[in-house]
């Protein structure tokens, strides 16, 4: 007669990957890996910090939670989804990376990303550079004035803010109005030549969202809502994100 089955004392613990699986539609296919390596061979982050997407996934599958949730590699994967596209099983590795980012204590996350997120909370502008709506209007008006006075054919170039019923709501990466305002001008002229009915908004004009990168769901959502509400409040048909 065979020996009785050996009973192990410990219950299998819920791993980091189990938790992530429960969050994702179709469990992100995280259990379906064939270890083929197609993900890693086309991933630009392969080799950084001795890591690659297949390795990261395998380590998570083996329950190496400590390593998976502490490697700085999660800040070097851009979540570009190239690996998902290449994977025969459509495994959602970037979601695993995103959840690993979220698991970092706030004070350990890269400061630049966290601060860019915090800066966007200062004003309804949602700018990661902490620029306000007034800063934006001032930069645009100053630049517009220069174009009008110097460029023949553009003496009456129009840029409006918060114009209700405009067809397009245009936003702008903060670095343009704040650091290189002349880069906004070609866009204005193209819109003008195309006869587009567009407006800027004083709320939610900043295109970027660093709270998403910081793995801060609550503030990420707040930014998206501020922007969407700004577009809705003006009744614009399209939201043009230049980012």
């Amino acid at each position: 007669m065979a020996d009785a089955a050996l009973k192990l004392g410990a219950e299998p613990k819920e791993t980091f990957m189990d938790k992530v699986r429960n969050l994702l539609p179709e469990e992100g296919h995280l259990n379906l890996c064939l270890t083929c390596g197609a993900c890693s061979s086309g991933c630009p982050a392969t080799g950084l910090e001795g890591m690659d997407p297949r390795k990261f996934l395998r380590m998570a599958a083996l329950g190496m939670d400590e390593e998976v949730t502490s490697t700085p590699w999660v800040w070097m994967c851009t979540m570009c989804t190239r690996c998902v596209h290449a994977c025969p099983m459509q495994i959602n590795i970037p979601q695993l990376v995103f959840q690993a980012r979220k698991s970092w204590p706030e004070e350990k996350k890269p400061r630049g990303i966290v601060q860019s997120c915090k800066a966007a909370m200062i004003d309804k502008a949602t700018s990661s550079m902490g620029a306000t709506s007034e800063d934006f209007v001032e930069s645009v008006e100053e630049t517009l004035e220069q174009v009008r006075s110097q460029q023949r054919g553009y003496k009456d170039l129009q840029v409006t803010f918060d114009r209700k019923g405009a067809k397009y709501f245009l936003n702008q990466n903060s670095r343009e109005p704040m650091a290189e305002p002349d880069e906004m001008v070609p866009l204005w002229k193209i819109m003008h030549e195309a006869g587009a009915d567009w407006t800027y908004g004083t709320a939610g004009w900043a295109a970027e969202n660093y709270c998403m990168f910081a793995g801060n769901d609550e503030e990420w959502e707040k930014i998206v809502r501020t922007k969407a509400e700004a577009v809705d409040a003006l009744g614009c048909e399209y939201w043009l994100n230049t980012e």
Partner: peptide, 25 residues
């Protein structure tokens, strides 16, 4: 769809990992 990401996204530019970002790129 098969193109490679340049490495400017995902917050990489603000993360402080400059040489890793360039190696990625």
């Amino acid at each position: 769809s098969n193109n490679f990401c340049c490495g400017g996204g995902g917050g990489f530019l603000q993360s402080g990992f400059k040489s890793a970002r360039q190696e990625y790129g």
